[in-house]
Amino acid sequence: MSSSSTLHLNQSGTTEFVFRVFTTSPKIQALLFCFFLLLYIMTLCGNTTILWAVYAHTSLHIPMYFFLSNLSLVEICYTTIVVPLMLSNILGAQRPIPLAGCATQMLLFYTCAGAECFLLAVMAYDRYVAICQPLHYTLIMTQKRCIQLMVASLALPFYLELHLTILLFTLPFCGHRLEINHFFCDAPPVLRLACGDIRVQQAVIFVMGFFILTVPLVLISISYIFIANTILRIHSAEGRRRAFSTCSSHLSVVLLQYGCGILVYMRPKSSTSEDEDWQLALVYTFVIPLLNPLIYTLRNKDVKDALKNSMSCTAASELP
């Protein structure tokens, strides 16, 4: 039978994917399931706490915390897109996901990942305006402007990733039931299962990944160059400390986000195996959404004060 006939037969049925099984040992499966479920619950609790604190306290009703609450919401969506299906597969079920479901998961996952990068750039711009142009802050960072920046941070990666997803999933796949060497529908392992020439798709993945990681990073860097220049011109040591403290949480999250992102997605592919790729992606998927709310809770005085006040009010209301 010719290769064209084989390809026709493979494409005549419904293509579906299954994810790699972590382990076949029931004891290890149970331990992994409990471990990742605990991380997921902690991630949901941490980010929900940020959302609640910003919503419940009028002192946090300013642009900086509006963007922070949206970042927490994106991270809740980001993990929820991947983790529930991953948990079911950890137990060795290998439940198939149809081609359309795989495409949807990839689109939503990359949209949230891109939105995180752009929201961090918007938050850096907000800090730039607050520190470098404080007299014009309320005129520049209006409610309308904040909503526009938030929508743009979501719409741009969605637009880019929609085209990438369509480009990937219009490829023919060699078989009806294919195993992805990963724990979610990530573009590189899905692309390895395609039949035919994939050079165009590989180039598009690289260009889009470079754009989504690099453009926000450049904007963040430019903002902090101006911020650093302004802080250094402040004569008072206490003034410099207070100005820097408003940026420290954001800087910590940026370093964590881009440190993990570069480690996972911008390393030379020849230097690591596919197994190392998904293991590092596992760290990236769980560590950042879990640590970001902890950083903002522990390093941000306004958020800490809001949470302390809430706990104090709750404790006082429970007294007889």
Rank of each mutant, 00 (worst) to 15 (best):
M1F: 15
M1H: 05
S4L: 08
N10D: 11
F17D: 03
R20N: 02
F22E: 11
F22M: 13
T23G: 08
Y40G: 05
Y40V: 09
T43W: 09
T43Y: 06
N47Q: 12
N47E: 12
L51Y: 00
H57I: 03
S59E: 15
S59Y: 04
L60V: 14
L60D: 13
Y65N: 10
F66V: 10
F66K: 11
F67N: 04
L68R: 09
L71R: 02
S72Y: 05
S72L: 09
E75T: 02
C77A: 13
T79C: 13
V82E: 09
L85E: 01
L87N: 02
S88M: 05
I90T: 11
I97Y: 03
P98W: 03
L99F: 06
A100R: 13
Q105S: 10
F109D: 08
Y110E: 10
Y110G: 05
T111Y: 12
A113T: 12
C117A: 15
F118V: 07
L119K: 03
A121Q: 11
A121I: 10
R127S: 13
V129F: 00
C132Q: 06
Q133N: 11
Q133T: 10
T138F: 14
M141E: 08
T142W: 04
T142H: 08
T142F: 07
Q148N: 14
Q148K: 08
M150T: 10
A155M: 07
E161V: 07
L162K: 13
T165Y: 01
L167A: 09
L168G: 03
L168S: 02
L168F: 01
F169K: 06
F173H: 12
F173K: 07
G175A: 14
G175P: 05
G175S: 10
H176K: 10
I180R: 09
P188Y: 04
R192W: 01
A194R: 00
C195A: 08
D197K: 00
I198M: 05
Q201L: 00
Q202A: 01
Q202N: 00
I205E: 03
I205C: 00
I205P: 02
I205R: 00
G209I: 04
F211I: 15
F211K: 03
T214Y: 06
V215T: 07
V215L: 15
F226Q: 11
T230C: 14
I231D: 14
R233Y: 11
I234D: 00
A237G: 02
G239L: 02
R240T: 09
R241I: 02
R242L: 14
A243K: 03
T246L: 07
T246D: 08
S252L: 15
Y258I: 13
T272N: 09
D275A: 09
L282K: 05
T285H: 04
T285V: 15
F286K: 00
F286G: 06
P289R: 12
L294I: 15
L294H: 10
T297P: 04
L298T: 12
K301V: 14
D305Y: 07
A306L: 08
A306Q: 00
S310A: 08
A316K: 05
